[in-house]
């Protein structure tokens, strides 16, 4: 069983590589652009759209996802050789759910307001496809340390998009960033209005669509074939 799961990357055992070898650095940097979880792999969209009305909850959400992805990748990667193949999804979900419960309790204890704003979406990190996707695609076939880095990288790649979207939405929707007023009062007196549409959930989709458009026109190799 274990021989089936552990594929190519383990062949280069024996050779000891430094903790931040070029290969491991790629694991960290790639998800920021070339294999961004949201805009390229299409993973974890649900929560990305729902929590991005304000910057503060989205930063908290991004941190929560980084922690959960990194540590569940680590744990799954450690026990990958003893998980029976048929029930691996249940095992993975249990590990992820345990991590999410920890994060949820932590948020409730220290930033209660934000945890109320995020409501069910903290719980939905369990089924956030980024976590599951990385477990299936990477942690099940790689050693713990690269899996941990891969988890952090993908969490950050997700967080970057989250922060960009929430920045756009908060700036145009309520004229503030992190709760501080950016667009001055005098602008409102001269007839400036907050754009109410940007606050509505559908605009999040359109903002992400435009981010994808910009990213792909800069990075030609991501363009989909006809």
């Amino acid at each position: 069983m274990s021989n089936e799961i552990s594929t190519a990357p383990e062949k280069e055992k024996g050779k000891k590589e430094p903790l931040f070898s070029p290969k491991n650095k790629r694991l960290l940097y790639d998800p920021l652009n070339d294999s961004n979880p949201i805009t390229v792999q299409v993973l974890g969209i649900c929560s990305a759209l729902a929590v991005t009305v304000k910057m503060q909850p989205s930063i908290v959400m991004a941190l929560a996802v980084v922690v959960v992805t990194a540590f569940s990748s680590l744990i799954i990667s450690i026990i990958r050789n003893i998980i029976p193949n048929r029930i691996r999804i249940i095992v993975q979900l249990t590990v992820v759910a345990a991590m999410v419960i920890l994060v949820d309790q932590f948020l409730k204890a220290f930033v209660y307001d934000v945890s109320k704003q995020l409501s069910v979406f903290v719980g939905l990190i369990i089924t956030n496809c980024i976590v599951m996707g990385r477990l299936e695609a990477f942690a099940m076939a790689n050693k713990p340390w690269p899996s941990f880095i891969d988890g952090i990288g993908n969490g950050i790649g997700y967080g970057v998009i989250l922060v960009i979207v929430s920045m756009i939405r908060e700036l145009f929707g309520s004229g503030e960033l992190m709760g501080f007023r950016i667009i001055p009062e005098s602008a409102y007196e001269m007839g400036y209005f907050n754009n109410g549409l940007v606050i509505m959930p559908p605009m999040a989709m359109i903002v992400v669509g435009i981010i994808i458009w910009i990213q792909r026109s800069r990075n030609k190799k991501l363009i989909e074939a006809k």
Binding site: P202, G209, I210, L222, I223
Partner: peptide, 17 residues
Amino acid sequence: DPLRGLGITFIITGLMA
């Protein structure tokens, strides 16, 4: 070209929403 596939799908979903 850059909008093809995923990008336009996002925008369509936004409009449907």
